[in-house]
């Protein structure tokens, strides 16, 4: 589904990603861990198409398409979803209106008819239940006045609505209390299917108790330096990142 080869990315002349390789197949869950400032969020932003980052070398192939040639919105319509670390507020735009517009655009791109108002509301209700969202969500403005936990739940809710093929969750667990974490993680798990893939970027092992990854990658200085299974996350939790740095130096 996703092949990233020798990816180099700079922002304002400073190289953040320094030759990153990653392959993700349908049905897989990948966790990306690593110390602060190693380029985890940059990777997520570049896949989504944030133009503040300049790709200087390498390629990203997504379902046999050159992802780097697609606009931000076309990537989204092709099924790439980014769960934001810091979701922005859009005052005056209701969640209903926002999701309706987004879903219409995506369906149109795929040559599907828009849902009727009744169908849409029913669909939205189902998806809200998945993340245990309250009913009052519909008329609230996008992320406006949401608590930290609500914002993150709202990201998962949007993911459920848009049914992406590739979801990248950028530190969705940060700032969540244990109940919210469980709800978010359950949502992600329920959305998992053999057709889609998830990349979870996280600092903490605890999220991986709920979302069980097939692969755990460690990023350091703009590259993936170590890959393992679930046990690697536990090892990191126990020993920190220093031993990896030491390994690299050796």
């Amino acid at each position: 589904m996703l092949q990233i080869k020798d990816l180099h990315v700079s922002v304002q002349g400073k190289e953040i990603l320094t030759g990153l390789n990653l392959e993700v197949n349908a049905g897989e869950v990948h966790a990306i861990m690593g110390p602060n400032g190693t380029g985890k969020s940059t990777l997520a932003s570049v896949i989504a198409g944030n133009e503040n980052y300049e790709v200087t070398k390498g390629e990203i192939i997504y379902n046999s398409k050159n992802l780097l040639e697609l606009s931000i919105e076309d990537r989204a319509r092709e099924g790439v979803f980014l769960g934001f670390q810091y979701p922005v507020e859009i005052p005056g735009v209701s969640m209903t209106n926002f999701m309706r517009t987004a879903l219409d655009e995506i369906r149109e791109y795929r040559g599907e008819k828009p849902l009727s108002a009744a169908q849409f509301l029913k669909y939205m209700k189902q998806k809200k239940a998945l993340v245990e969202m309250q009913d009052k969500l519909n008329n609230r403005s996008v992320n406006e006045g949401f608590s930290g936990g609500e914002k993150k739940k709202n990201e998962i809710f949007q993911m459920a609505m848009l049914e992406p093929k590739l979801a990248i969750l950028d530190e969705t667990d940060s700032g969540l209390d244990i109940d919210a974490l469980r709800i978010v993680a359950n949502g992600v798990t329920k959305l998992k299917s053999p057709e889609n893939a998830t990349i979870v970027i996280t600092h903490y092992q605890r999220l991986l108790d709920y979302i069980v990854p097939d692969f755990v990658h460690v990023m350091y200085e703009g590259r993936i330096v170590k890959t393992g299974d679930k046990s690697l996350a536990l090892e990191l939790e126990e020993k920190g990142y220093d031993w990896i740095k030491d390994e690299l130096k050796a």
Partner: peptide
Amino acid sequence: FYCQQRGLSPEKSIGLIVNG
């Protein structure tokens, strides 16, 4: 960026934000 990441064209995005 947030709107476009959800599949909205830049035009639709600005329209939505302005109307909001």
